[in-house]
Design a protein around this nucleic acid. Structure first.
Lengths: 173, 173
DNA sequence: TGGATTTTGTTAGAAACCTAACAACTAATC
DNA sequence: GATTAGTTGTTAGGTTTCTAACAAAATCCA
């Protein structure tokens, strides 16, 4: 009956992230933000005046996404775009006064989400979880760079349909 | 300087999920699917003929999302809608022949993603990770039901700005 | 100096998601 | 039986996200 996706770690990760985004959205809507926008503000709070590319990198998002988000945040009066003087290509983004103020609300919402999400989890487990999530992130981002098409290596792999998570072999990769 | 979001577990989860979705998308595009569609097919493979609401629940998504996805999957010839006979409101969704065939490719893509994402992680850690993700999912979905506005309880909480995850120290990682 | 290349950002178009409002059908109650 | 209430799904409109194609500025280089 194929791959038992419901018990796969990737599916679990996707579902947990979906629930988190949903809950995050509930908090953010109360402070006039859409999910994703709060991260832009926080990244800028950390280091103001970043370029679009730098923002995209920090957010783990593609440049066009940043363009649209910054456009909307600008019309909301939370950030402003400013062209660099010595390099006409670079568009630097700065927090406005209102943007700075909003950060405090973002912090509160984020802390609340963190508390809700990790309820009943001790410090050791939280740390472990962060560490494991980092591993996944690293594994996948390095894959992205390779941009590999080593499909053949896999096509030839003689694993049965059931041999994935937990069951049977699965002795680390 | 506010909440150190970069080391928060929720941010790490969001970033890991983003990387995963991105990588997943790379695999799925090769088999003619968009991220999210593969889950619909898998859920139906598990139990064909579900209603829209049941699909939404299983996917962790809102009903309107299901409507659009099913519409597109239908025009791709992978599923088909069929109105229930004894209850004219219910729309049941079934996999087509082509849909069933596509499942095999989905399984391969998903297994590959699982392998890539969890590379270098032993069985014990994978299991632990799944378990912790489940906790988060459960914590947040129960919150959704409450639909609480117990903001006051939090407003009064006298935590300093830094006192969230693991607090202050947070060495390594 | 002037044209080709690279880098940076935006525009165009599409899909997955959301909430709010609506239509259609069933069930319940008088 | 007819009106009311509840359930199920869709439509409308918006945001985040993507890829592909484009414009503009800086750099390279002949």
């Amino acid at each position: 009956m194929g791959f038992n996706f419901k018990k796969s770690t990737t599916f679990r990760l996707a579902q947990a992230a979906k629930a988190q985004r949903s809950r995050s959205g509930a908090h953010l809507s109360r402070i006039g933000l859409h999910p994703g926008q709060e991260a832009v503000l926080k990244v800028l709070a950390e280091s103001d005046g970043r370029t679009m590319s730098q923002l995209a990198l920090a957010l783990g998002v593609q440049p066009p996404t940043v363009t649209k988000m910054v456009t909307r945040l600008t019309s909301q009066g939370l950030v402003e775009r400013q062209l660099a003087e010595h390099d006409g290509r670079l568009a630097r983004v700065y927090l406005t006064e209102e943007g700075h103020e909003r950060i405090q609300l973002v912090d509160r919402a984020w802390k609340r989400l963190e508390r809700e999400a990790l309820a009943g989890m001790d410090d050791k487990d939280r740390k472990k979880l962060r560490k494991l999530l980092r591993v996944i992130e690293k594994n996948l981002s390095s894959k992205m760079l390779e941009d590999d098409d080593d499909e053949e290596a896999e096509e030839a792999s003689p694993q049965g349909d059931e041999a994935v998570n937990g069951a049977a072999v699965e002795t680390q990769v």
